[in-house]
Amino acid sequence: MIPTILAVSLLIFVIFSVIPGSFTSSLIADGKGRNDPKVVEQMNKEFGLDKPVYQRFGSYIINLAQLDLGQSFRTRQPVTHMLLERAWPTMKLAIAAMVIAILIGVPLGFVAALKPGSLLDTTTMIAAVSGLSLPQFWLGLLAMYVFALTLGWLPSFGYGDGGIRNLILPAVTLSVAPLALLARTTRAAVLDVMSADFIRTARSKGMNAYRLVTWHLMRNALVLIITTVGLQFGSLMGQAVVIEKLFSWPGLGSLLVDSVSMRDIPVVQGAILMIVLWFLIINTVVDVLYAVIDPRISHG
């Protein structure tokens, strides 16, 4: 875990020292600073941007070891504070989207697999392919237009009081891709397990379809489904950036986008670190779940 964090931090430092622009130049571009070499030098000094990259990286790592992520160039607030504020809305969004995706996608894939080639199966799979290929940005705009602007059922953007009404549109939009993928994976997993030898054994024992599914099929299919859920949970963080921007959702994603365009490196560092941490946590949870479900994976 620590090597991963070190590597990611180094990568960000290298990237931001290679791409053109810095916090000071972006301030000037915004018209908030004067393009006076003296002022620029003064500001660079203040933010430590005058020091070479390796020195900045060194002091960053030393601070990180003490759980100090530094201060935002822009707001002068401690980065940890800003991140904690933004983490909860993003988690809420990601979890809500994943819950929707699981609750609809898994049963849909299951039912489709029980009657392969049926009308329901074909419809579901066509819908799933569409769901995967439609751009989320466009889907979000459509949802906004229909449910907020035309029907007026839900607020079109913003966090509101943090209640469920504001959450619905961004969460549903974010859930479309993982839902479609889960439906497809579940269908494939169930079909895969159904052709396994031990299912034939189970049938030869004389059990009915209900027992076959609940005693032998579900757990085995679940092992395959959990992989997808884990992967999707991780990549949701990436997709959330777009959705948060679109719905003005005050999460890590929109913080990251704003900070990148301002070259607010400490915040970028911190936000990406949070996302990496999130990946690592999800991976660990998936591994634990595997060990619980599958006796072939030894514990520890």
């Binding site: 034939r200 005693w215 085995n220």
Partner: peptide, 23 residues
């Protein structure tokens, strides 16, 4: 189903895959 496994039962060729790995 009442006959299967009860009055007529079957053993298969592949003992490696004929049993449910998770039970």
């Amino acid at each position: 189903r009442r006959l299967r496994g009860n009055r007529i039962s079957m053993i298969f060729q592949e003992p490696m895959t004929a049993l449910n790995p998770l039970a």
